[in-house]
């Protein structure tokens, strides 16, 4: 659903002599499943921030299916991200005090004033799909594995063409990690979304078709 063409990317942070990220060219095909690995501090998170429009890029092109994020302002990147990217984060970032289904619906509620038609049904369907039985259970009473599954359901609600996960299994134990890994790859395939996962987890990396290895801000191989 979304091809990525990345050209001449260079990200520098103030006070650092070398660029944090320097990628002359990278292409992803729509529906591809990509693992992003490398030692910590190699630029994985920076690349993910760039690909999701969270980080402002001043040098190069980050073109998703004809939309160059470099040319978009902050508000436009927010809108683009809300419409095209589903994010799963290491710390889940679920909001305590709200139920599972409220958490799934929250980004949509905040992005537009009213929920789009069918959003609630879709949220219920997705929560069932990820194996959450009690939709109104407060998230703070859930296990970590359950929390990350709610986060996966949340990432998929808006039918994004791109799913980005940042160490989604790093804070989960073995079984829960495997379940989340299976869900991510399976669901991305079901909806035909491009999946980008930054991870050290071999269970997850092994499932993915392509591995990008980052070191010192450069892609290897």
């Amino acid at each position: 659903m979304a091809d990525l063409t990345l050209r001449d990317l260079e990200v520098r942070f103030p006070g650092l002599e070398r660029p944090a990220l320097e990628i002359p060219a990278l292409e992803l095909r729509s529906g591809e499943q990509v693992a992003l690995t490398g030692p910590s501090g190699c630029g994985k998170t920076t690349l993910i921030n760039v690909l999701t429009g969270l980080e402002r890029v001043r040098h190069g092109h980050v073109d998703w299916q004809g939309t160059d994020l470099v040319t978009l302002g902050e508000g436009a990147r927010d809108r683009w991200r809300a419409a095209n990217v589903g994010l799963v984060m290491q710390d889940f970032h679920l909001f305590p005090g709200l139920s599972a289904i409220e958490n799934v619906l929250l980004p949509q509620r905040l992005a537009r004033f009213r929920l789009p038609r069918g959003a609630k049904e879709e949220a219920r369907r997705l929560l069932k799909r990820v194996g959450i039985a009690r939709l109104d259970q407060p998230v703070e009473t859930m296990s970590r594995g359950q929390m990350q599954r709610v986060a996966v359901a949340r990432a998929l609600l808006a039918h994004p063409g791109i799913i980005v996960a940042d160490e989604p299994t790093a804070s989960l134990d073995g079984d829960a990690g495997t379940a989340v890994a299976d869900l991510l790859t399976g669901l991305a395939r079901e909806v035909g979304a491009t999946l980008i996962v930054a991870s050290h987890d071999p269970r997850l990396v092994g499932h993915l078709g392509r591995v990008l290895r980052l070191d010192g801000g450069r892609l290897e191989g």
Partner: peptide, 20 residues
């Protein structure tokens, strides 16, 4: 900071953050 950032990352526009 992180929680607010997460809301933004998940697609909440800036004006929604301001409003909250």
């Amino acid at each position: 900071r992180r929680q607010i950032g997460a809301l933004r990352a998940l697609g909440a526009p800036r004006h929604a953050i301001f409003a909250i």
